[in-house]
Design a protein around this nucleic acid. Structure first.
Lengths: 238, 238
DNA sequence: CGAGGTCACTTGGAGCCCCAACTTTGCAGC
DNA sequence: GCTGCAAAGTTGGGGCTCCAAGTGACCTCG
């Protein structure tokens, strides 16, 4: 039954097994196209296709001129929601608690809401609000992107204000009562692959977070996280 | 600068644009390999590669003997956590509330914990527990997989008991106090692609859910959801 | 000993071809 | 009008080849 399977799958499965069972440790070189054709008695097309499939699964990474190598797959670091709710940098406090030196760049600009954000903040599409882009880095390497949208009146003006959205909004007599996050996964957009330094085939977790004051949305943000490096932990008291 | 870009990218970008801006609506046929080579003046390899990339992004789907078509991408259905916490079938109640006729198959069997589950339930690796596999279907189509692990003493024996883990555990004088879920994304395993009827390139959301009674884990399960069809909503009171 | 250059090897893009298995369409015959 | 079949078109697996750009090892020369 398995004899009529495509031949490239034989190669994929053999190498995948060697990677998962540790025969090929992270960083180990994968045989080159030429070596695979000889070793598995397959054509170049099959060898090439096998490498592409393994790369798209995130198991190996190809370096032009050098070869394919088993990808370093750090254990999925947990990002704990619920512990660090009121933080301008979602998950950043969590990364810090993992002993990484977390830095971040941000820049704000006025922007039109647009259909998507308008719906999420229950505003008119043409409303102008403050959009802030964040890039978070751990020990220099990019870890996470976030884009936050706030109505102008809540926007932070000082570094101090930026630290707590809750306090900032409370200054207007509005109390945040709920945070809603929606998680899904998707292919990174080109700009995101670039900013996060993602190899092909790695998906991202996209978290849409909205701060609510009663039934009024107060802030919303899009958080983009490499899907293969992190797990998001939600803890819910019963 | 963009003139030296690979030619297959020109094709990918042009078709992607047509799909996202609606020129090619869901279900619309994509030009065949032969047509693409003529239309974009590229070789077969480039046309083929472009189609493969678009398919791996989940934008199109190939049907052998027929052609490639723009994939139907139903809006990401929300699965609300927090609302239906004590349910044997995670998210199933939620699917039902979306007007789908949800059915599910399950079967239980005794199984050894193994390293992973042993760690999650803080048991010995060789402990025997009840493993239950669920397949959830909405209007006949598979929507979600779940595998639940319960120590033998908490396992359900009647259909009635199956309805509430909280009640089942409470019968032993143990009160569930917390549910922890960890979300990440990964490539579906072959069995999962099969069971969920997933085309190549679609990732899954993997939710590890653990019910805790104080500092004692009481049940844990793995929930696997097509990443492109669902979003998981977490709602956290501040 | 160190610097620089050459050369072999590797990836990734691209082209062309063959074939099996499957779908669609259109036509011929009942 | 309907059935059944053949032909044409399509995907996906596989093979072969050429080439540009990058890497790494080694060797030669100052």
């Amino acid at each position: 039954m398995a004899t009529s399977d495509p031949v490239y799958l034989r190669v994929v499965e053999d190498i995948r097994r060697q990677i998962t069972d540790g025969t090929l440790p992270p960083g180990a070189p994968i045989p080159s196209r030429a070596q695979l054709t000889r070793k598995y008695q397959v054509g170049e097309t099959a060898a090439r296709h096998a490498l592409r499939v393994l790369a798209s699964e995130g198991l190996i990474i190809g370096r032009v001129g050098s070869g394919h190598y088993v990808r370093e797959r750090p254990d999925l670091s947990p990002l704990h929601r619920w512990r660090f709710l009121d933080h301008p940098a979602p998950f950043a406090a969590d990364l810090q608690s993992q002993g990484r030196r977390v830095t971040w760049d941000w820049h704000s600009e006025p922007a039109e809401a647009g259909p998507d954000i308008a719906r999420r903040l229950r505003l008119d599409e043409s409303t102008t609000l403050t959009r802030t882009h964040y890039v978070f880095r751990g020990d220099g390497r990019p870890l996470q992107l976030a884009t936050s949208y706030e109505p102008l009146e809540f926007a932070a003006h000082t570094e101090e204000e930026r630290r707590s959205l809750v306090a900032r909004v409370y200054a207007h007599g509005i109390k945040i009562t709920e945070i809603v996050e929606s998680v899904h996964t998707r292919v990174p957009r080109p700009a995101e692959s670039d900013a996060l330094d993602l190899p092909a085939g790695i998906h991202v977790l996209h978290v849409e977070r909205t701060h609510w004051a009663g039934d009024r949305p107060v802030e919303t943000s899009d958080i983009v996280i490499p899907g293969d490096r992190f797990r998001i932990m939600y803890s819910m008291p019963v």
